[in-house]
């Protein structure tokens, strides 16, 4: 053994420890050394480097050993892809040693997570200065936290929906409140007159209802009895309307219904009758005494093109007062807007 060989053997041990991911190539590109971590993935093969790796960049036709030699000379980066499974892409750089051999040091980059899985790597497979363990730590931590956050988001979304419903609901009757009505009416108005959607217009009827003699119930029997009556009226309205109709209580004893698709006066008259009958059947006192009734005003959306939901509400209110003035317990239907 001559002196040069001794030094090279000593070097190899140092390099093995220091660079667990290195590839050592003879001047002709033959593999003469592989670092211990890299060996876990590609084995202890010898032979031309082209049997183990190819250039990971597309369209490179040059022989790999020539690419490596040029990269060593010019300080360029190398991107190598394993030819056999796990077929990971590695990146690295190369230096030419004094004896003309090439020392390539490789690393994982973002492929680290795949590599850990594919090759069953452990803490001791990484050189201590490498940030591999920190990257894996962050990757796991990130996934755990994101998982938790997405369940938070889910909870928040549910809470938001519940709050929204609550904000638009009259707590006493469970019908919509004034805000809920405003939103529903502007949606109905939009659906009826949307120029984008001329083929599928949805006419609707707007019903304004006011209880007759409700104030007397409140005054003589107290607010509790009054509240009970309002609840029962809410039930009547829910039972006499369809699921896609909107029923709202917009104040004391005032109710509004939005009835999509209804424009026929006879149908609306029949419906009004059912509602008034239902409300008159509401028991106010324990002995079954009945005192309340209702007056109704109805307007039809046809004819309100270019006008506003507010005008519709105003007209429905006027119709309601015509019913009141005509002796209550009845409905008035306006065929067209009041000007």
């Amino acid at each position: 053994m001559d002196g040069t060989t001794d030094i090279r053997i000593a070097d190899r041990a140092v390099i093995e420890q220091l660079l667990p991911m290195h590839l050592h190539l003879a001047a002709d590109g033959t593999v003469i050394g592989i670092g211990p971590t890299l060996r876990k993935m590609i084995g202890a093969a010898t032979g031309p480097v082209e049997a183990l790796f190819r250039d990971a960049r597309p369209g490179v036709t040059e022989e790999l050993s020539a690419t490596i030699r040029r990269a060593a000379g010019q300080g360029e980066r190398l991107f190598l892809r394993m030819i056999d499974p796990p077929m990971l892409s590695l990146r690295g750089h190369a230096v030419e040693t004094a004896d003309g051999s090439l020392l390539v040091d490789l690393g994982f980059g973002i492929a680290l997570i795949d590599a850990v899985n594919a090759a069953g790597l452990t803490d001791s497979d990484f050189a201590p200065p490498e940030l591999a363990m920190e990257l894996l730590f962050l990757y796991e931590a990130n996934r755990a936290v994101l998982g938790e956050l997405s369940s938070f988001n889910h909870q928040l979304e549910e809470a938001r929906r519940a709050a929204e419903v609550k904000a638009h609901t009259d707590p006493l009757t469970g019908l919509s409140n004034r805000r809920g009505l405003d939103i529903a009416l502007s949606l109905a108005f939009h659906a009826a007159f949307d120029p984008q959607n001329a083929d599928d217009r949805k006419a609707f009827a707007l019903v304004h209802l006011d209880l007759d003699k409700f104030k007397q119930v409140n005054d003589t029997l107290g607010h509790e009895a009054g509240d009970r009556v309002l609840c029962d009226v809410g039930c009547v309205l829910r039972e006499t309307t369809r699921s896609h109709d909107v029923a709202a209580r917009i104040g004391g004893d005032e109710f509004v219904l939005i009835l999509p698709g209804l424009q026929s006066a006879p149908t609306l008259e029949k419906l009004s009758r059912r509602i008034i009958d239902g409300i008159e059947a509401v028991r106010v006192t324990a002995d079954g005494g009945s005192a309340v009734s209702a007056s109704i005003g109805i307007v039809l959306s046809d004819g309100y093109r270019g006008l506003t939901p507010e005008q519709m509400l105003r007209d429905a209110d006027t119709a309601l007062y015509r019913s009141k003035n005509a002796g209550r317990r009845r409905a008035t239907i306006l065929q067209k807007p009041l000007v």
């Binding site: 850990v116 899985n117 069953g120 790597l121 452990t122 894996l136 998982g147």
Partner: peptide, 14 residues
Amino acid sequence: FQLGAAFAARGRGV
């Protein structure tokens, strides 16, 4: 404690 274990198994998270 295997480095890759968490990526296959779903840990119970907090």
